[in-house]
Amino acid sequence: MNRRVPTALIAALSLVAGFAVAQATDVRALGGAVLAAGAAWCVGRSWRTAGALRVLVVVLLGAIGFVASHLLARTPLGPWPSVLLVAAALGAVTWVLVDRRH
């Protein structure tokens, strides 16, 4: 049985942790660094097993989600729910494209 933490979980938590760090420190670049470190870890971990195309699709969708969370944060939904929604979507897509056995 494979007991490793799914890449999808790390991808989703990277988005949430990056936002939390940016909020807590009031330094957006620091939050971005946390997000970038999480993304780099996910890419490094799954490049060989999932393949370049799947990983690049997830990275692209993560970037789109990052922008979407900023746009959604300006709606009545608010910032934290927006980040959590996008993180859940990113985690689901990552699980389907990277973690799930094909």
Rank of each mutant, 00 (worst) to 15 (best):
R45Y: 08
T94C: 02
L61E: 08
F66V: 13
P76N: 06
D99A: 06
L56T: 11
R74P: 06
T49A: 14
T75I: 05
V93Y: 01
L53H: 14
G62N: 02
L56M: 12
W80V: 15
A89E: 06
A89L: 15
V57M: 12
A73N: 12
R74Y: 12
R100L: 12
A73G: 13
P81Y: 09
S46Y: 08
T49S: 14
V83Y: 02
L60W: 12
D99E: 13
P76V: 03
T75W: 13
W95F: 07
P76Y: 11
H70W: 14
G44E: 08
D99K: 05
V55M: 09
V86C: 02
S46K: 09
V98I: 10
P79Y: 13
S82E: 02
V55S: 03
G91Y: 03
R48K: 15
A52W: 14
I64F: 13
L90S: 03
G51S: 05
G65E: 00
A68L: 15
G51N: 06
L90V: 09
V98A: 02
P81Q: 03
W80K: 02
A88W: 09
W47F: 11
R45L: 09
L90M: 08
A50W: 03
P81E: 01
I64G: 10
V93F: 03
S69I: 08
R100K: 10
T94G: 02
A68K: 10
L90Q: 06
R54T: 08
T49N: 11
V83R: 00
L60P: 03
S82P: 05
V96E: 11
G91W: 01
V67H: 04
L72I: 04
A73E: 08
A68I: 11
G62L: 04
L53Y: 06
G91P: 05
V55N: 05
L84A: 04
A73I: 11
A89S: 11
G62F: 04
A89V: 15
V93E: 01
V58Y: 01
L72Y: 01
L53M: 10
G91S: 08
P79V: 08
A73T: 12
V83T: 02
F66N: 12
T94M: 03
R48P: 07
G78V: 03
L56V: 10
